[in-house]
Design a protein around this nucleic acid. Structure first.
Lengths: 211, 211
DNA sequence: AAACAATACGTACGTTCGTACGTATAGGCA
DNA sequence: TGCCTATACGTACGAACGTACGTATTGTTT
């Protein structure tokens, strides 16, 4: 108990320990469901007992895997990030850098919000406002991921700008706007506004006009 | 108990009943504090016991005034609306309709988020994402207030457009963008970004360029 | 005066929460 | 083989939650 092992193996080697594999599988199943709950009702909507009941586990079994509530939060936030990368960021890497990749990112993002990947829509739209005033590791993780997303957009806009693909804009300001509009689109979709994606695309197109 | 009286008097007459006046005063004190808590941690952060402790009342006394938790939520949402109207909307009515009033609304809004009027920043930025996926009267109230805000902006933009004050834009789309940017500004301020208001003003100025 | 109404409080009940602790099982390793 | 570890479960505890109910106090109304 004093010598708690991180369940993170040395980065080079593959995990072969069957116990750790089983644990990782269980953790993944739990955090996957936790992300859905958190996108719907926020991280505060999570509880060890609820997750256990929903997944047919015991409350203490869930506790064994995450030790504390904050650990569960952090694991859920990390799981959301990985699912988001798979659904939005990595598919967009197929597009060439610059304007095309920005379009791909926005298109995949709108799919991510519209389909939606998580039951309650965008995970960060649901949870960043809840934690942005509460210092701590959860806020830091959410804010860091949000910042990464902004940087991703602005970097691609900068690339498009340098390549002469788009008219002169401030890439950081445009990324800020794009993210703002996407978040508003997510909320509008949640409220039943089916026209929101169209509006979002129109705004983004404004940033991508040829010079 | 069956014949519950609404504490809303006939719209014409002033309230003279000392008991109702006292109740209204107590309710106002409670909801004022509740709005602060809800802006910080969300409406879910509210509890009868916490409000009672913070304000030196008894838990059952608070319960008497609001009967149920949902009633407390609705009263808090309504209190936030009234405080917002006083801080942002009504002061802006001093400006002439059109572009000037839009500027006044945005300036007062940024003050509202920057000062801030509520401890945790914008009340709707904190709570609409939490309730946008949960059907019920709380969601309806929050969504209605948000829609009123959007309509207010777009109406003033339309006025500016008809008066030839600004270049040709889609007023609804611009209002959607403006609101999106303001919400993102609130979050950025919460995360310690002091440059956010400047960015917001630059974006809004883009909608208000002369034709 | 008597009857009623609206605030307030005290108490109590059942539920859910996070956490702590002991135990059992299965897998890895000396 | 024996020893350790990671999952899982069962149980228990204190705290906080929303709500119900009875009672006292104060103000209004008849």
């Amino acid at each position: 108990m004093e010598e708690m092992s991180d369940n993170v193996p040395p980065p080079g080697a593959a995990v072969t320990d069957g116990r750790l594999l089983r644990g990782a599988r269980s953790r993944r199943a739990i955090t996957r469901h936790a992300v859905d709950i958190a996108s719907l009702e926020g991280l505060n909507g999570l509880s060890l007992g609820r997750l256990a009941t929903d997944l047919g586990l015991s409350k203490s079994g869930v506790q064994t895997l995450f030790k504390t509530k904050e650990n569960l939060y952090l694991a859920t936030v990390e799981a959301a990030r990985e699912l988001f990368l798979d659904a939005v960021v990595r598919p967009a890497q197929a597009a060439p850098p610059g304007a095309a990749r920005v379009r791909a990112l926005i298109d995949h993002w709108i799919d991510y919000a519209e389909k939606p990947l998580f039951t309650g829509g965008c995970f960060w739209a649901a949870n960043l406002p809840d934690f942005d005033s509460r210092p701590g590791p959860v806020r830091d993780a959410l804010a860091g991921q949000h910042q990464d997303w902004l940087s991703l957009i602005s970097a691609q806009l900068r690339h498009a700008l340098n390549a002469g693909e788009i008219a002169s804009i401030d890439p950081d300001l445009a990324a800020f706007q794009a993210d703002a509009v996407l978040n508003a689109t997510n909320t509008a979709l949640r409220l039943g506004d089916r026209d929101a994606p169209g509006r979002a695309r129109r705004v983004i197109d404004g940033f991508l006009t040829r010079p």
